[in-house]
Amino acid sequence: MKVTVNISLKEGVLDPQGRAVERSLASIGFTEASNVRIGKQITLDVDAEDTARAHQRAARMCEQILANTVIEDYEITIEEDQ
C-alpha cells in the first residue's frame, strides 16, 4: 500500500523558515499570503494485509522516528494498491 505521511509543525511552534518565505512572498507582491508554515511529506510502500494494519504500522513509524512529536504533528493517508 502507498502510505503518505504529512508532517507539520505543531501550532505555537515558531517556523522561522515559513516566516522568511512569507516575507519573500510579500516582497514579490503576494501580500495576501500569511501564516506560511513549512512541513514535509514522506511517501512509502508498506506491505500490509489491510489498510487498518498499514495505518497502525505507519502511526508507529511516526511515533518512533518519522516525526518528532515534541514539535511536529503527523497525518497519514493510505492508498490501496491497484
Binding site: V13, L14, P16, Q17, A20, N68, I71
Partner: peptide, 10 residues
C-alpha cells in the same frame, strides 16, 4: 527533554 529547532536568524 525538548528539542532543538532551527536558529532564530536562520
Amino acid at each position: 527533554p525538548g528539542t532543538l529547532v532551527k536558529n532564530k536568524g536562520l
